[in-house]
């Protein structure tokens, strides 16, 4: 019961760890960006799920409804999503430029190329 009542937190933690793992372990930059996206999304879910009021309805003002869920987290997360998309866009743009400059988007290949740069 207690385990289930925290199901949203469990989902958040699993997503977060998946994303984090992806970012750290993967050498491919696109996969890093994907991991970053998952990581950010987990926090969005954390925020939004906090706005749910048990028994509350969608926060649209109408007849016959007394309890509404909290709409503020949705609004905040809308902003955060925009920020997240912008981050992803910048990251992808950088990846394209890196591919142009190095001919690869793999960490190991780039590290090797950086060694060459240093010499």
């Amino acid at each position: 019961m207690t385990l289930l009542s925290f199901i949203n937190y469990w989902a958040v933690i699993i997503l977060m760890m998946t994303g984090y793992y992806c970012m750290i372990v993967r050498g491919n930059m696109i996969k890093k960006v994907i991991g970053l996206g998952i990581f950010q999304t987990s926090v969005f879910i954390l925020f939004i799920s906090a706005g749910k009021v048990i028994g509350g309805a969608t926060p649209v003002l109408r007849e016959g409804v007394e309890r509404y869920s909290n709409p503020l987290p949705h609004v905040l997360i809308l902003t955060a999503i925009v920020v997240g998309i912008a981050t992803t866009a910048v990251a992808l743009a950088l990846t394209v430029r890196i591919r142009e400059a190095y001919g690869s988007i793999d960490d190991d290949a780039i590290d090797a190329a950086e060694e060459d740069d240093r010499v």
Binding site: Y20, M23, M29, K32, L36, F39, Q40, V43, F47, A80, T87, V90, A91, L94, T95, R97, I98, A101, Y102, I110, E114, D117
Partner: peptide, 22 residues
């Protein structure tokens, strides 16, 4: 060209930091 890599790695670290803050 290493500036690109530096920017990308900063982006990953920085976003993790900002998300922690969030």
């Amino acid at each position: 060209r290493r500036a690109l890599i530096a920017a990308f790695r900063y982006l990953i670290m920085g976003t993790v930091g900002a998300t922690f803050l969030l």
